[in-house]
Simulated scan of single mutants.
Amino acid sequence: MNTLPLLTRVLREPASMAAFDAPDWELLLRQAGAADLGATLALLAEEHGVLAALPERVQRRLAWSRTAWERHTQAVRFEVQQVQRALADTGLPLLLLKGTAYVAAGLPAASGRLFSDIDILVPKAALPDVESLLILHGWAAGHHDEYDQRYYREWMHELPPMQHMRRATVIDVHHAILPETAAVRPDPALLRADARALPGVPGLQVLAPCDMVLHSATHLFSEGEYDHGLRDLFDLHRLLCHFGAAEPGFWQALPGRARQLELERPLFYALRYSMELLGTPVPAATVADADGGRPNAALLALMDALFRNALRPFLPGSGSVLAPAGDSLLYIRGNWLRMPPLMLARHLFHKAFLSPGNVKSI
């Protein structure tokens, strides 16, 4: 475990922070800042009873991060209310995804969690009404050219991101969790059918526990962007730990639900790297049942090298000299998983040569 980056070791054993010296804290705070996990450190130190033992300057820094997270959480709750109000006329429940869902449901994964947009899932047939109502209430599509608009509306699993003209908040409206051009397309109707209402909050829903884990795994291991890979892996760790303890039958149901949704491969990777890097306690029977998602030995060796690098906390100038090549391979892989080869070639050519400023935006 000593070969793991410092931040990863702390996420595994938060109490170890009590013994850190000044150089350790300098590195840890830089890694946490780059990974958007500063507030998470503060909450972990408090949860494990070591906050008072930390240097005063570190306590002040962590307190600032915690305050910023608390204000962020308040803003998220307010924004969810505004979105719910805007879409009330659709008659649909507001189904929240990812970080927004963690906050609304009060899950441990919300503790310290920062994110940049509100994610919701609606039926594809409702997209025109949802988009019109959001525009009526102050949201507008971003500055996307004609190609990007077509890319989102014909091929992707979401509308182009919309930003509120006054509050500058961003909403992503999904109709599925993977693009329609992808080889694997989990049926979004299955996700909506099993969604759970939030007690005491009429009209709000989140995905069922297994589906929430599988969506998180799919987002992390199929998208191809890893700027916050360690943070997203820690989300998975906390979701697995929480649901494994709080939901009877969760561990037995998870692999079967992955097979039903054709998400065995993302689940395999999620369990493999959360166990390896964060020590997630997954029952052996679940690991064995999820082994159907294992790639062949050669591919697994390659993915181990790529993911172990991508799931490290990133700092400018840190990491292997081969890290940028690995990042590029994962980016190409993410696009490969989302579209057939000819479409992918056209897409990468367009983004590289016709709109180079947007290469990483799609």
Rank of each mutant, 00 (worst) to 15 (best):
R85D: 08
P356T: 08
L204C: 04
H237A: 10
L136Q: 11
V83I: 15
F78S: 03
L190H: 04
R312A: 14
L11R: 07
Q252G: 09
R185D: 05
H350W: 15
L236P: 01
P283Y: 13
D304E: 04
G200H: 06
H157Y: 12
L6A: 09
P186E: 02
A88Y: 11
P283A: 10
A301M: 07
R12W: 09
L121V: 08
V359Y: 12
G256V: 15
Q205K: 07
L240W: 10
G334T: 00
L240K: 09
P340H: 01
L348A: 05
S320K: 14
E158F: 07
H143E: 14
D24I: 14
N335G: 09
L92P: 01
Y331R: 13
R66M: 00
H143T: 12
G138H: 05
A68H: 04
G319D: 13
S216Q: 11
S361Y: 07
A104T: 09
A75Q: 01
T67K: 07
P123H: 06
L92T: 06
V80A: 12
L54M: 03
L230V: 09
G279Q: 09
A105I: 08
F268W: 11
H157K: 13
T90Q: 00
Q82V: 05
A52Q: 12
G357I: 05
R308Q: 01
Q82M: 10
G142D: 06
Q205P: 00
E225I: 14
L127N: 01
P55L: 08
V173R: 12
P316W: 08
R9C: 03
F250M: 11
H174S: 04
E262K: 07
A35Q: 03
L51F: 14
A310I: 01
W64F: 13
E264G: 08
R185Y: 02
L230N: 08
A323I: 15
P55M: 06
E47L: 05
M339H: 02
L239W: 04
L92R: 07
P14V: 09
G91I: 00
D89K: 15
Y226I: 00
Y226V: 00
G138F: 03
A35P: 03
V206C: 09
L348G: 07
N2K: 15
E46F: 02
I171D: 04
D235A: 07
L44I: 04
C241S: 14
G293V: 11
A88P: 03
K360V: 03
Q260H: 04
V103L: 07
Q59D: 00
V122I: 13
A301I: 06
S216H: 12
E154T: 05
D194A: 14
P199W: 00
P14Q: 10
L51R: 15
L354E: 13
W25Q: 07
V58Q: 01
L240C: 13
A104M: 15
I171G: 01
P255Q: 10
L271M: 08
M165V: 12
P283F: 06
F353D: 06
S111Y: 12
L311K: 15
Q74L: 09
L207R: 12
